[in-house]
Design a protein around this nucleic acid. Structure first.
Lengths: 219, 219
DNA sequence: CAAATATTCAATAGAATTATTGAATAATAA
DNA sequence: TTATTATTCAATAATTCTATTGAATATTTG
């Protein structure tokens, strides 16, 4: 019979497995990608810039700790987050990092120079204003992520297309841009470009996964 | 100027530092001890069974990731959690582990055989019943953790003293025992012993730190 | 049936992590 | 001032982690 000290150590070793799984930048990035919707190995490798073998290795680790699940479709293996709480876990990990690691703030201050987040108006108010056509909600993620789920009334203009399309946007409406998460550069760059063109543009602080996890409506 | 890919990788490397810090069973245990109140190196070494040098090494890592802070008092260095959100982070990490790692449930089912948690009666109701003297709230942590903070109306009987003291407890009142966290064995063992002696005893599901983080009153 | 494609596995090398041991440092007590 | 105590540092060895490379496996296409 296992002693209570051994039991506790074994149990905490299991908890530590989750910590280890999150202890690598690429695996965190994969989690962020999967938070937008399921992806296959090749897509994840391309998105992250890793080799396919290395991507598969990281996915095996995430799978073995139960953070992701896999589904075979033909010869493609699609990966999903196993549980929406993984989004909450990553969100609070980022939050803690933001508050405890000076380097996070230094990086953000240096690189993400478009400062003002959207004033934290209630999500319900944003939804109502969007419904009334008073603001443009702009999703700058790739189309397949938009298709997997997005904010109600959102339009999808991936950042790389923005330069060619912004002139079709009404200038008399505020634009609220959002992306994969709170540190997604695409939303920052979109807001910067739009402001350069005279638009009144802001960034939603969180991304689509956090919005969804908050129980807010999605399409 | 840092490219946006580099920026993202650097930022996620910072997030990964938090994951790595949590990727070791002993550091998680230290976090759980510090969640009850500040401790010095020697105390933490004794509680965890690690050498003082090794304990200090783990503490340096936790300090460098900002999860703990240190305060010198005479020749003693006292460590604290830097931020109560670290308790939330550990709680959700456990929660995710519970849902994704079969081994967690296997360990718990095998070792913690006293099954019924307290029915999830609202904390407010528990508090009111304690105030009216209808239940006994029993804190089985060591006295220094009890002194650092505890549930209102709680009495402190460390598990090792319970055998000699339980006869002083009123048998006509339910006993609600709590400890350091949801998997703390001391509360399980207390409940088992009390039931053996004919008491109507249950375990509070969470520990003192989670109670506190929920904004519930403490003494 | 063979070729192509997607993915995983296995082996390897280098880097990172962890525990141990002894030395060094800082603060207090005698 | 010296001895004691508490803690940290540094070096080392063992273990674990990560990326790479090539092979193996599974599925689809021609």
């Amino acid at each position: 019979m296992m002693s209570s000290d051994n039991f506790k150590l074994e149990l905490f070793n299991q908890f530590a497995r989750i910590g280890k799984a999150l202890g690598n930048a690429y695996r965190l990035e994969i989690i962020e990608f999967l938070a937008q919707g399921e992806r296959n190995v090749e897509e994840l490798a391309t998105l992250s810039g890793l080799s396919i073998a290395n991507t598969s290795q990281h996915l095996q680790q995430l799978k073995q700790t139960g953070l992701v699940t896999a589904t075979k479709k033909g010869q493609y293996v699609y990966y999903q987050l196993s549980n929406p709480k993984v989004i909450d876990l990553f969100a609070i990990l980022r939050d803690v990092a933001e508050q405890t690691l000076a380097e996070v703030n230094k990086l953000v201050d240096t690189f993400l120079t478009v400062k003002d987040d959207l004033e934290p108006i209630p999500a319900k108010e944003l939804l109502e204003r969007a419904r009334q056509g008073l603001v443009t909600v702009l999703d700058v993620r790739p189309p397949e992520e938009f298709n997997a789920g997005h904010l109600p009334q959102a339009i999808n203009i991936p950042l790389k297309n923005l330069e060619n399309i912004y002139h079709t946007l009404p200038k008399d409406k505020e634009i609220i841009a959002y992306c994969r998460g709170p540190y997604c550069i695409l939303a920052y760059q979109a807001v910067a470009q739009l402001r350069d063109q005279g638009f009144s543009a802001y960034r939603l602080e969180n991304g689509f996964p956090e919005w969804k996890q908050a129980g807010l409506p999605i399409e």
